[in-house]
């Protein structure tokens, strides 16, 4: 009996033992994998942040080299007020970004309406060409516009840069606003019209409040893309306009101890400004949603 019982239960026990073992090791592997996943994710955040943190650290350091460390100072920050060209570069970049983003927003919002509300010939072609400015490599768009501008008599200048960036910003507005309009419930508009509102009133009271955040997001995207663009501006900004990116690139390629200190400070201030702006924006709106739809190139 005993042997029989043993005979019959032992394998079962063994199996369950094996099973528990396997389950245990399986769970261990699972949990290891799970922890590994989170550790890897954390590592990636470090990868994203480490170089930026080093800039921030060095902006407070005496010497632009990490080692040997020579102590902290605020002198680098005091130094940048007297930095020739920096102020006018910031002003130039702000002006270019603002003007071109306004143009891009007006054009982009109008074309979003066209794309979502009307059927017309060549609609798909129109849409494709509305997206191309953000896909075509910056160096090619810049070179193409430079040759074209020179031939039609527009010298590389502030104006040429605004035109270029307004084209570059268009797809971002177009994508964000038209996506919003696609999900917009048009019956709301119909109801308003049925109640006697004219198209302008309907737009003002019904449509605009709904799509306004998308318009704002589109504007901001176009603005940021213009502000941080180097390569397009390189070809069309000419020698008299010096946007911030050109100014910084000059400092980077003419690396010297003083230049590196200035660069670290300016870069830190940019990171700081973005950090604040982003925190405010995320507090108010769905930044992630807009970002996901427009991730594309910027060089």
């Amino acid at each position: 009996m005993a042997t029989e019982r043993g005979g019959s239960t032992e394998p079962a026990e063994q199996t369950s033992q094996e099973y528990t073992d396997r389950l245990f090791s399986h769970q261990r592997i699972e949990s290891l994998l799970g922890n590994g996943l989170y550790a890897f994710a954390a590592l990636m955040l470090v990868f994203l942040w480490l170089p930026l943190l080093i800039i921030v650290f060095l902006s407070f350091a005496q010497s632009p080299n990490l080692l040997p460390f020579e102590g902290f100072t605020l002198g680098n920050y005091q130094g940048i007020t007297g930095e020739p060209g920096l102020r006018s570069s910031v002003v130039a970049s702000f002006s270019i970004a603002t003007l071109s983003a306004i143009i891009a927003t007006v054009l982009g919002v109008l074309s979003s309406f066209a794309l979502t509300r009307y059927q017309f010939p060549l609609r798909e072609v129109y849409r494709t060409f509305g997206i191309i400015p953000m896909i075509v490599p910056g160096v090619i768009l810049g070179v193409g516009l430079r040759f074209y501008f020179l031939t039609v008599g527009i010298d590389p200048s502030f104006f040429a840069t605004v035109l270029t960036h307004s084209l570059y910003g268009l797809p971002f507005v177009l994508l964000i606003v038209s996506a919003r309009l696609y999900t917009f419930d048009e019956s709301l508009e119909e109801a308003a019209r049925d109640l006697g509102a004219d198209p302008l009133t309907t737009f003002r009271d019904i449509t605009f409040p709904v799509i306004a955040p998308a318009i704002g997001a589109g504007f901001l995207f176009a603005w940021v893309r213009s502000f941080e663009d180097y390569i397009r501006a390189l070809f069309v900004s000419g020698v008299t306009t010096d946007p911030l990116t050109q100014w910084m690139f000059g400092k980077i390629t003419k690396a010297s101890a003083e230049n590196l200190n200035v660069l670290n400070v300016v870069s830190t201030l940019i990171v700081l400004a973005i950090a604040i702006a982003l925190a405010v924006a995320m507090n108010y709106g769905n930044v992630t949603g807009y970002v996901a739809g427009t991730g594309d190139e910027e060089e």
Binding site: A179, V210, P213, I215, G216, Y284, G289
Partner: peptide
């Protein structure tokens, strides 16, 4: 994504 994590729409207009 819009439909997933939509935020408070009204305020960002002011920010803009």
């Amino acid at each position: 994504t819009n439909s997933k994590r939509s935020g408070t729409d009204g305020v960002s207009r002011r920010a803009y």
